[in-house]
Computed example of a mutant assay.
Amino acid sequence: MSVITRRTVLAALAASPLLLQPAWAQNTTLKISHQFPGGTVAEGDFRDRLTRMFAAEVEKRSKGSLKFEIYPGSSLMKTNAQFSAMRKGALDMSLVPLSYAGGEVPEVNIGLMPGLVTSYEQAYGWKNAEVGKELSRILNEKGIVLISWIWQAGGVASRTKPVIDPDDAKGMKIRGGSREMDLILKAAGAAVVSLPSNEIYAAMQTGAMEAALTSSTSLISFRLEEVSKALTTGRAGAYWFMFEPLMMSKAVFVRLSKDQQATIMAVGAEMEAFALSSAKADDQAVADVYAKAKAKVVDLNPAALKKWQAIARTTAWKDYGERNENCAKLLKLAEKTL
């Protein structure tokens, strides 16, 4: 009876290189989940379109070794479960507002810090600035790989009056979108309501909420003009800038071949130009949509922006910077970009 030695096994493996390759380095199908309405590559919410464009281009460049399934409208899992699922390797990819994970990873609330980002130029400059590199490092440490940097300005849809100055928010039930946004709203005298953007319509329809801050694209895609009488746009400046990147589970990413990883990162970076132009287009389009629905449309003015920013410095920024060392460092690095 022959004895199988370690040397024999290693020799056999060396003769069969395919056995040394993980299955993920060959052919695989990745699932991309998001909360936004579904469409096509050519039409619909640009965030859904971006995931489809990304998927098609990666499949093409990887010669079919990577394929994708897109799950819009939180059809694969609940909105707030996506970040945690990626960290555990239970979800491959997601395009989700980063601040939604603030309860799990406090540092990510920098992605919706009122008044800290006030222009697209500043926002997209984060990627190669110290703050962006540090945020990427922290996310990587938490099991998340940033694939595409996507930023959106936002505005306020209201069932009653326009919300421009902090005084306008007093006594209103408003959705901010993050712990930090909620802090400045509370300081302005508002009662805050916490829920994902895909649940805003129902809350405003029933009167459980009177106003909501969200991105221009969500203001359109979720048809909030149907339940609003006023809109404050972000086209002339905003204190509400949301970072909602396309992300991937690190546990999934590391199992891909080096070529597959490089393809994903390259295509992800190329999608950013589309995201920027689409977000800017929606900042204008939202005003047209609401005007057509007979809502009162106003822009945020520089004086009002400074008032909100002043409140943010003493409430949201202070609170965030005191949460842990990472938060303090990120805030300091972000302030360098102002």
Rank of each mutant, 00 (worst) to 15 (best):
P166R: 13
S178M: 00
E199F: 00
P196Q: 10
R159G: 15
R159N: 14
K170I: 04
S194R: 08
I200A: 15
G176L: 04
G189Y: 08
S194L: 02
A187P: 12
K186M: 01
Q205R: 06
D167F: 01
D167H: 05
P162H: 15
A211Y: 07
L195I: 07
I174V: 14
E199M: 10
P166V: 15
K186R: 02
D182L: 12
R175K: 15
K173H: 15
A208N: 10
A169M: 13
A211C: 10
D167G: 05
A188S: 11
D167P: 01
K161R: 10
K186P: 03
S197R: 09
S197H: 11
D168R: 15
P162G: 13
A188M: 06
M204Y: 09
A202V: 00
S178D: 01
I174N: 00
D165L: 01
A190C: 07
M172P: 08
R175W: 03
I184Y: 00
M181Y: 06
E180T: 11
G176E: 01
S178P: 01
N198R: 13
G176H: 05
A187M: 04
L183K: 05
E199I: 00
I184H: 00
M209N: 06
A203Y: 13
A191E: 12
A212T: 04
L213D: 00
M204N: 05
I200N: 09
D167Y: 05
S194Y: 06
K186H: 03
L183F: 13
D182E: 07
G171N: 10
L185C: 08
A169W: 11
A169T: 15
L213Y: 06
R179Q: 02
P196F: 09
S158N: 14
M209E: 14
G171K: 13
K186S: 03
V193I: 13
M209R: 02
I164W: 02
D165G: 02
R175H: 05
L185T: 10
L183Y: 11
A212L: 09
A190R: 05
A190Y: 08
I184M: 00
G176V: 02
A203S: 07
G171Q: 04
E180Y: 09
L195W: 02
V193M: 06
D167A: 07
G171D: 09
D168L: 11
T160S: 12
K186Y: 04
S194F: 07
T206C: 03
T206H: 02
D182M: 12
A188N: 09
A191N: 05
V192M: 04
P166M: 13
R159Q: 15
G207I: 03
S178F: 04
M172A: 07
N198L: 00
G189V: 14
V192H: 03
I184S: 01
K173F: 15
K186E: 11
D165M: 07
V193W: 02
E210R: 07
G189M: 13
K173E: 12
A191F: 09
D167W: 07
T206M: 08
S178G: 02
E210L: 03
L183T: 03
G189R: 06
A169F: 15
L195D: 03
K186N: 12
E180L: 12
E180N: 09
P162L: 13
G176N: 03
Y201K: 14
R159K: 15
A202M: 00
K170F: 10
G189I: 14
G189F: 14
S197N: 09
D167E: 10
R159P: 01
S197E: 12
I164S: 06
T160A: 15
I174G: 02
L195F: 03
